[in-house]
Amino acid sequence: MKIEVLGTGCAKCKSLYEAVKTAVKEKGIEAEIVKVEDIPSIVKYGVMSTPALVIDGKVKFSGKAASPGEIAALL
Protein backbone atom coordinates (compact mmCIF):
# COMPACT_ATOMS: atom_id res chain seq x y z
CA MET A 1 0.00 0.00 0.00
CA LYS A 2 1.26 3.45 -0.86
CA ILE A 3 0.11 6.45 1.12
CA GLU A 4 0.92 9.95 -0.05
CA VAL A 5 0.45 13.13 1.94
CA LEU A 6 0.23 16.10 -0.41
CA GLY A 7 1.11 19.51 0.92
CA THR A 8 3.44 22.43 0.39
CA GLY A 9 4.67 22.42 3.96
CA CYS A 10 2.04 24.17 6.05
CA ALA A 11 1.43 23.24 9.68
CA LYS A 12 -1.65 21.15 8.85
CA CYS A 13 0.34 19.14 6.28
CA LYS A 14 2.85 18.15 8.95
CA SER A 15 0.14 17.15 11.38
CA LEU A 16 -1.54 15.00 8.72
CA TYR A 17 1.76 13.29 7.96
CA GLU A 18 2.28 12.49 11.64
CA ALA A 19 -1.30 11.23 11.97
CA VAL A 20 -0.78 8.89 9.01
CA LYS A 21 2.38 7.47 10.58
CA THR A 22 0.52 6.83 13.83
CA ALA A 23 -2.44 5.24 12.05
CA VAL A 24 -0.23 2.88 10.05
CA LYS A 25 1.71 1.87 13.14
CA GLU A 26 -1.43 1.23 15.17
CA LYS A 27 -2.99 -0.90 12.47
CA GLY A 28 0.31 -2.73 12.04
CA ILE A 29 0.17 -2.76 8.25
CA GLU A 30 2.93 -2.52 5.70
CA ALA A 31 2.72 0.79 3.92
CA GLU A 32 5.02 3.19 2.19
CA ILE A 33 4.36 6.73 3.41
CA VAL A 34 5.53 9.57 1.20
CA LYS A 35 5.30 13.30 1.73
CA VAL A 36 4.76 15.00 -1.62
CA GLU A 37 5.79 18.64 -1.58
CA ASP A 38 6.43 19.60 -5.18
CA ILE A 39 3.64 21.47 -6.86
CA PRO A 40 3.49 19.64 -10.21
CA SER A 41 2.85 16.33 -8.43
CA ILE A 42 0.19 17.85 -6.19
CA VAL A 43 -1.55 19.47 -9.13
CA LYS A 44 -1.41 16.22 -11.09
CA TYR A 45 -3.87 14.73 -8.63
CA GLY A 46 -6.24 17.64 -9.24
CA VAL A 47 -5.95 18.68 -5.62
CA MET A 48 -6.39 22.39 -4.99
CA SER A 49 -6.46 22.65 -1.26
CA THR A 50 -3.76 21.14 0.87
CA PRO A 51 -3.15 18.97 2.79
CA ALA A 52 -4.61 16.02 0.93
CA LEU A 53 -4.42 12.27 1.48
CA VAL A 54 -3.83 9.89 -1.41
CA ILE A 55 -4.00 6.13 -0.96
CA ASP A 56 -2.81 3.94 -3.84
CA GLY A 57 -3.18 6.83 -6.26
CA LYS A 58 -6.69 7.75 -5.19
CA VAL A 59 -7.50 11.08 -3.47
CA LYS A 60 -9.34 10.33 -0.22
CA PHE A 61 -9.79 13.88 1.01
CA SER A 62 -8.28 17.33 0.66
CA GLY A 63 -8.16 20.62 2.47
CA LYS A 64 -8.08 19.27 6.01
CA ALA A 65 -5.99 17.39 8.50
CA ALA A 66 -7.38 14.27 10.15
CA SER A 67 -6.99 12.22 13.30
CA PRO A 68 -5.18 8.86 13.22
CA GLY A 69 -8.55 7.20 13.87
CA GLU A 70 -10.16 8.72 10.78
CA ILE A 71 -7.18 7.72 8.66
CA ALA A 72 -7.15 4.18 10.02
CA ALA A 73 -10.76 3.85 8.85
CA LEU A 74 -9.65 4.61 5.30
CA LEU A 75 -6.78 2.11 5.24
Binding site: T8, C10, I39, V43, G46, V47, M48, S49, T50, G63
Partner: peptide
Protein backbone atom coordinates in the same frame (compact mmCIF):
# COMPACT_ATOMS: atom_id res chain seq x y z
CA UNK B 1 -14.90 28.57 -0.83
CA UNK B 2 -12.41 27.80 1.92
CA UNK B 3 -9.08 29.35 1.15
CA UNK B 4 -5.75 29.41 2.86
CA UNK B 5 -2.81 31.29 1.44
CA UNK B 6 -0.68 28.15 1.76
CA UNK B 7 -2.72 26.46 -0.98
CA UNK B 8 -2.86 29.54 -3.23
CA UNK B 9 -0.38 28.01 -5.68
CA UNK B 10 -2.09 24.66 -6.41
CA UNK B 11 -5.38 26.55 -6.52
CA UNK B 12 -4.12 29.08 -9.03
CA UNK B 13 -2.67 26.38 -11.29
CA UNK B 14 -5.80 24.24 -10.96
CA UNK B 15 -7.96 27.18 -12.00
CA UNK B 16 -6.07 28.48 -15.02
CA UNK B 17 -5.23 25.00 -16.30
Amino acid sequence: TPFCSCSAVPLFIGFVE
